[in-house]
Amino acid sequence: MSEPILHITGLNKTFGPVHVLHDIDLDVRAGEVTALVGDNGAGKSTLVKCIAGIHGADSGTVEFQGKPVHIRSPKDAAELGIEVVYQDLALADNLDIVQNMFLGRERGSSWLLDEASMEKAARETLASLSVRTVKSVRTPVSALSGGQRQTVAIAKSVLWDSKVVLLDEPTAALGVAQTRQVLDLVRRLAEQGLGVVLISHNMADVFEVADRIAVLYLGRMVAEVHTKDVTHGQVVELITAGRSGDIGLARPEHAVL
């Protein structure tokens, strides 16, 4: 098995008195899809935001490609090649699709943006994602449907030369065809050698695309298992009870948020 590209140990996060993440260990391997699952409020999005530099973690170490790194801002994460598709979509409604996709990393000089090259690249990326219902890449995001926004957010993350892509419930708002597209995309990203983290509540999707499954239960990482070693039922049990047979927390009833 390859060395993890992203190696997280002992990560803790509190929001005031609420201890949301307890000593999280997580490995993301290049060329693999790691599914991150857990009930509502388990801390999945918070973990992603800590990795992305949105929230500062209270303690814990992050190693990227074997080197310890300090991700203090979204910019740091982007420079390392970590891209995130957020559950609460991070798009500016008043900007159009192209402007959103390149936000923060505009092409051209800062005194004269290269609109032409950005527009072309945006169109090509969207085309490759088979976005068929958007009338023009110059449509403001406010005029898009929920699924279209989701696709723009995903397209934004694959536009860059990234090494790790974290997708927080990317298919939650999507129709059947788009969900298919995104799942295929997730597989292809991994085949290209990226490390992919997929958060999803849909077990069928998880079992279809994930190589490994990491289960969060009340802010604790209760299991990191190979998909082929577990059954649906076991994962569901891990999610809801923190324990299944001899996998999981020893005494889940003592786990409190």
């Binding site: 072309k120 169109r123 090509e124 990326t125 969207l126 085309a127 490759s128 994602l129 088979s130 976005v131 068929r132 219902t133 958007v134 009338k135 023009s136 890449v137 694959v158 536009l159 860059w160 030369d161 990234s162 298919r180 597209q181 295929d184 995309l185 292809r188 990203l189 085949e191 290209q192």
Partner: peptide
């Protein structure tokens, strides 16, 4: 499923080489 995209393994960072098919593929843009 979209047959064109399925056969296109390098669709991410640099979709340039297939840009022509890609643009016609881009639905009603």
């Amino acid at each position: 499923n979209d047959p064109v995209n399925q056969k296109e393994p390098t669709m991410t960072q640099t979709p340039t080489e297939s840009s022509n098919t890609a643009i016609t593929d881009f639905g009603i843009d």
